[in-house]
Computed example of a mutant assay.
Amino acid sequence: MLVDTHCHLDFPDFEEDFDQVLANAKEAGVDTMVTICTYVTRFEQVLNIAKAHDHIYCTVGIHPHNAASEPEVSVKDLCAMAADDKVIGFGETGLDYFYEHSPRDIQQRQFRTHIQAARELDLPVIIHTREAEEDTLALIEEEMAHEPFTGLIHCFSASKAFADRVVELGLYISISGIVTFKKADELREAISDVPLDRLLVETDAPYLSPIPKRGKRNEPAYTAFTAAKVAEVKGVSEEEFAKASTDNFYRLFSKTKRG
């Protein structure tokens, strides 16, 4: 069985066939999903999806794109929203300098707030980084030096050096469908030496559909294609990788209840 550690089931893309999407996931062997919060102002909608389904969990947080447009939350705010049993982490948060929809200083400030909340409740933080590798690593290292925290780099697409360093710092790496793309040789090389006990898989649905579904709306069922490619890169069977990545999920997201 597999876990889709990062999807967005509250997005309008799934409104018309939500139940079928869940059925497709079950048929593909994806028995657990984490629907990720990107706007705190929509958190209730995200939480309600998780509460309605035993096999779906959620997070609370503000995507770096939305750091300036959303209310600036405090550690206390985030921790209060994470009180429900179905909320298993904070984010997604982090730095995105590719689009820069929000000023960098606000992104960085909110990133630190999420990390502080993660420490407060001993929950993982889900980290987004794009075209911000140097600043992301510097901020993580600074916060780790102050006090350690747990978490993962979601939709990993950075360098091998970055991968090696975040693993050294105790974080996990989550792989999306990008790993299946023909031109993703650098990504496959970057994760080739990441220990098996630090890897997770995700879809980031409805985005980033893996080959052979590229060009179509992504959905949790397609986690299986990504997992198969990561297994190939790591030189292990699909069954071995499925077990390892699922074990990793339950180890990192300790608030979950394994069935």
Rank of each mutant, 00 (worst) to 15 (best):
E143F: 02
A228C: 07
L139I: 06
A221H: 06
L137H: 10
A242L: 03
T35D: 04
H53R: 11
S245F: 03
V40K: 13
D19I: 07
N66V: 01
T226V: 08
H6R: 09
V73K: 08
L121A: 00
I140C: 04
G94L: 01
E189H: 12
K86N: 04
S237D: 04
A228M: 06
V233W: 03
L208T: 09
L78N: 02
R214D: 02
E92D: 01
T41H: 14
R130E: 08
A117F: 03
R258S: 11
S254P: 08
E232H: 15
D197C: 09
E168H: 02
G235D: 13
R109V: 08
T93C: 13
Y39M: 12
Q20H: 00
L137W: 04
A82M: 04
H63V: 11
E202D: 06
E147G: 08
E168R: 04
T35Y: 03
L200V: 03
E238Q: 15
F249Q: 05
A205F: 07
A52T: 01
R104I: 00
D85H: 11
H63E: 01
I36Q: 04
F249W: 07
N48A: 07
V3S: 10
D197H: 14
E142N: 13
S192L: 14
T246Y: 09
I88C: 07
A184R: 00
E133R: 09
E240G: 13
L152Y: 00
E189D: 15
A158N: 15
G94A: 02
Y207T: 03
R130M: 07
A28L: 10
S102G: 15
T226N: 03
Y172I: 06
L199W: 08
V40L: 14
R109L: 08
Q20W: 11
E186N: 15
L137G: 09
S176D: 04
Q108G: 13
D185P: 06
H65Y: 11
F149P: 01
D197Q: 15
Q20K: 14
K26G: 12
D84Y: 00
C37T: 04
L95K: 06
D247L: 03
R104G: 05
E27T: 07
L196G: 15
L95T: 06
Y99W: 14
M81F: 05
E133G: 13
E134S: 10
E133W: 11
T246S: 12
C58K: 03
E15G: 14
A117R: 02
F90M: 14
Q20C: 12
R119K: 12
K76H: 14
E131Q: 13
L252K: 09
R188S: 04
D85G: 11
S69C: 14
T256P: 11
G215L: 05
S176Y: 02
G94C: 01
A242M: 01
A68F: 13
P12E: 11
K51E: 13
I56Y: 04
Y250G: 07
S174M: 05
F162Y: 05
T35W: 02
E143R: 03
P12C: 10
A50I: 06
Y222I: 09
